[in-house]
Design a protein around this nucleic acid. Structure first.
Lengths: 136, 136
DNA sequence: TTATATTTGCAACATTGTTTCATTTGTATC
DNA sequence: GATACAAATGAAACAATGTTGCAAATATAA
């Protein structure tokens, strides 16, 4: 789906910064860091606007934050062309050597049965280890 | 186990800062933030030393970092009196309202079958939602 | 085209994490 | 104990990440 449609569907105003951000996330098959997104957004990137739009788009359910390590925050579209949904559907792999984050589409999030009184919203599964490229 | 024994067992030098840090972590049943630990360490706390010892003690396998949200990093002892091990054994609950982190001892980490070429080290399961105190 | 609420971008700030380096301290050995 | 040496500490300075207030610009509905 085109960025403009995604924004309209979620009732979020269509601005150049948001369009560029969504378009950037559609260019790769993996969750991207702020710097990667920044490169692709070129002059439409502004740090403060970026942080604010991360908040706005995440609340609207358009994007999802993946925190593998506190210094390795990544972002992904919730509903993307790649055939998977980033909201609590699959696990992520974090390489401790190169810090890459890979979607483990075949590893599903388990069913969570919380104790009474707790309200479930989301579940993140982060697998840490060494990726194929770094593992010799 | 007493802090001094833990350090000796893991072949890490016994220093006042490390002793105070481990002792602080033994005082609570939940993963603590830097500020909580700082309070308990009193004048034995130094920010730079703290970060360095987080690194040292984590590498030695004495403590474990729990990153629920990039601005909410918490620390826990791996082998503690509370009858559980923080290394890849149970899930953690993160309250999106009060940012508390609770150990979900009854929710175990699922068995992970990684694709060929990947090396497994650890797995974190973070459940996000609203805790009993914030959920009315 | 106009009105209005929202978004943007700047400045300034706050928090979190890292690096260098001289001084201090822990521990093994005498 | 005293000594030697590697390791840890703490200060300063820096780097990266995230937040807030506010005036100007802009998106959308009428």
């Amino acid at each position: 789906m085109i960025a403009a449609e995604i924004l309209k569907q979620h009732e979020v105003k269509k601005t150049p910064a948001r369009m560029a951000m969504i378009s950037a996330l559609q260019l790769r098959q993996y969750p991207m860091s702020e710097n990667e997104i920044k490169e692709l957004m070129a002059d439409l990137y502004d740090r403060i606007t970026f942080y604010r739009n991360v908040q706005t788009l995440a609340t609207a359910g358009i994007i999802h934050k993946i925190v593998a390590d506190n210094t390795t925050v990544r972002y992904a579209l919730n509903c993307c062309e790649h055939g998977h949904n980033h909201t609590a559907e699959h696990a992520h792999f974090f390489c401790e050597t190169c810090h890459a984050v890979v979607c483990m589409n075949q590893i599903k999030i388990p069913y969570i049965n919380l104790p009474a009184g707790y309200k479930f919203v989301d579940c993140d599964v982060i697998i840490k280890g060494i990726c194929t490229k770094c593992n010799h």
